[in-house]
């Protein structure tokens, strides 16, 4: 297992946010994290990259308890794209992507060819290379999101955590970012709201509700009309798509 979450609980003050979650992702696979607003997706991702400490349970990265991994080592392995992160500093797109190299640089080691390659490659992958010198605060929401993904790629992680990476993206870039991530061969956990995209791109899915996993497994097992009604409170009709062969969900009103 590349990432294994075992019986993890976390409370913010008195609110229980993550309530005994167990799940695992195999090396190189993509796990989709679904669930309504406030179900604990972002919180779980924050726990996995140790931005918060678990109250109980263990999170393992390649069999090693993350609590025992030094912060900098952890950052060389896991990259995290937050749901919302912005800055007032006058940074260019390239400055932001270069931040991704932070964990790879020693105190005295200067910026190297490797670093340049990783940055240029990451910029090209999200289709932002031609915008490298533009200021961050002048970018559109979707462009910012792509730059964040590039920053995470420049970190050359072996595990990638993405919190709603398709937020703000036009449909072309939604598909591009997700297919990019799935083709990287990096173990990934992606929090998503679009069930169809989740079904299309993820190897497995976990559905959260009130901080608990209510369903987990392959997309076709997890995404049932019954589950969607129970968790999201909407009626859905599911069929295999004649176009791409994956599951396709249509919602019905009332």
């Amino acid at each position: 297992m590349s990432i294994a979450v075992e019986n993890v609980a976390y409370a913010a003050g008195k609110t229980i946010v993550v309530d005994g979650i167990t799940l695992a992702v195999e090396q190189g696979k993509v796990l989709g994290l679904l669930g309504p607003n406030g179900s604990g997706k972002s919180s779980l991702l924050r726990l996995i990259c140790r931005l918060r400490k678990v109250d109980s349970g263990i999170i393992r990265l390649a069999e090693q308890d993350i609590a025992a991994i030094p912060r900098a080592n952890l950052a060389r392995r896991i990259a995290f794209v937050e749901q919302q992160a912005t800055t007032d500093t006058q940074l260019t797109v390239r400055d932001v992507v270069q931040l991704g190299r932070t964990p790879h640089r020693g105190l005295l080691s200067p910026w190297g060819v490797d670093d340049d390659l990783a940055v240029e490659d990451a910029l090209a992958r999200v289709d932002m290379a031609h915008r490298a010198d533009q200021f961050w605060h002048t970018l559109s929401g979707g462009e910012r999101q792509r730059v964040h993904v590039a920053r995470a790629l420049a970190q050359t992680p072996s595990e990638l955590l993405l919190d709603e990476p398709t937020n703000h993206l036009d449909i072309q870039h939604q598909l591009e970012i997700l297919s990019l991530v799935t083709r990287l061969g990096v173990t990934s956990i992606i929090a998503l709201h679009d069930l169809n995209l989740a079904a299309m791109f993820c190897d497995s899915l976990a559905v959260l509700q009130n901080g608990k996993v209510v369903a987990a497994g392959a997309p076709q097992e997890v995404l049932t009309e019954d589950l969607i009604a129970r968790v999201f409170g909407v009626r859905a009709h599911i069929e295999r798509s004649a176009v791409h062969g994956r599951y396709n969900i249509q919602y019905t009103m009332g």
Partner: peptide, 12 residues
């Protein structure tokens, strides 16, 4: 630049 969480995720 992107806050304390982003800094921590970068290994700070």
């Amino acid at each position: 630049a992107f806050g304390t969480d982003a800094a921590a995720a970068l290994g700070i």
